[in-house]
Design a protein around this nucleic acid. Structure first.
Length: 277
DNA sequence: CTCCTGTCCTGCCGGC
DNA sequence: TGCCGGCAGGACAGGA
């Protein structure tokens, strides 16, 4: 569920609350996450200092010293990080799988009812040289441009919707923001990737950036108190322009069409059949 | 190599 | 009211 803006906000919250603190102990309540938690996970983390928090795509990377270890965290679709400051009491929840106690009394819990998420220690010190990261496409808000997108779409027969969800094309976009971006770009989700023009690629890139930036801003202003880095806020806009708007009027005043829902790759796409060509 | 489908998991919601 | 089926989603495995 969380896409780039949500992950970015959770990561910033963690950075403010737990960076430069030392881990006291770690409780692993459930090992069977999407990737099983290693038996020595808790042991490896204990007494390490949290030196950095970064994000790559929808992954959060926590750097630990000494030993330069990296904890890789993915929120899946129902994952949350709840942080309790030194004075607060930790309130356990049913699906708190991993609970990290810091030496200053701060506690953070990884909660994930559906267990699509994961938390593990990278096997390489250079985490970006291993598995999910090695084949990742550009960060949409940093090094992404229309030429890069166009080059990646050139030989793709798949449709543009599926292509934009492909991590190798660009990272961080999920079902919701892809629907929104394609709507504002005026591009139908059904279009074959290799038929996207330079002009359309420009629009997709520009608008995706805007949609993501706007959502990050909304998240930043919503989460004033990062002590409660609580994924329960979920998406930062309560409703979207096309996502989940099946049967509603298209938001353009001059367009009288209704938003349509179709299934692509087993996932819902929402679009305006009149505005998106 | 690309494409496509199935799988994992739980909570929630609509229908009967 | 309670139960059941279907759906939601990111990432990946495996078959074509």
């Amino acid at each position: 569920m969380p896409e780039l803006p949500e992950v970015e906000t959770v990561m910033s919250g963690m950075r403010r609350s737990i960076c430069d603190k030392r881990i006291d102990r770690v409780q692993v309540k459930r090992k069977d996450l999407r990737i099983p938690v290693n038996d020595d996970f808790a042991q490896q983390l204990s007494s390490k200092s949290i030196k950095s928090l970064t994000r790559r795509g929808k992954y959060i990377i926590m750097g630990l010293d000494p030993d330069n270890l990296h904890v890789i965290l993915h929120l899946g679709m129902s994952g949350r990080i709840r942080i309790f400051g030194a004075g607060e009491r930790y309130e356990p929840r049913k699906h708190d799988h991993i609970i990290v106690h810091l030496e200053d009394g701060t506690i953070f819990a990884f909660e994930d009812p559906r267990r699509f998420g994961l938390m593990y220690i990278a096997s390489e010190k250079d985490w970006c040289k291993e598995k999910p990261f090695i084949s990742m496409g550009p960060e949409p808000l940093e090094d992404w441009c229309a030429q890069d997108l166009l080059a990646k779409l050139k030989n793709k027969k798949a449709n543009i919707k599926i292509s934009l969800l492909d991590q190798r094309v660009v990272v961080g976009l999920g079902n919701i923001y892809v629907c929104e971006a394609l709507y504002y770009a005026g591009v139908s989700p059904l279009r074959a990737a290799n038929t996207i023009s330079e002009d359309e690629a420009e629009r997709i890139v520009k608008i995706s950036k805007e949609v993501l930036e706007k959502a990050i801003k909304a998240g930043g202003s919503t989460l004033k108190d990062y002590q409660h880095t609580d994924g329960s806020l979920g998406y930062f806009q309560h409703s979207f322009t096309v996502y989940d708007q099946e049967g509603e009027d298209c938001s353009r005043p001059s367009c009288k069409a209704k938003i349509k829902r179709i299934t692509q790759g087993g996932r819902s796409s929402f679009y305006c059949p009149k505005c998106q060509k």
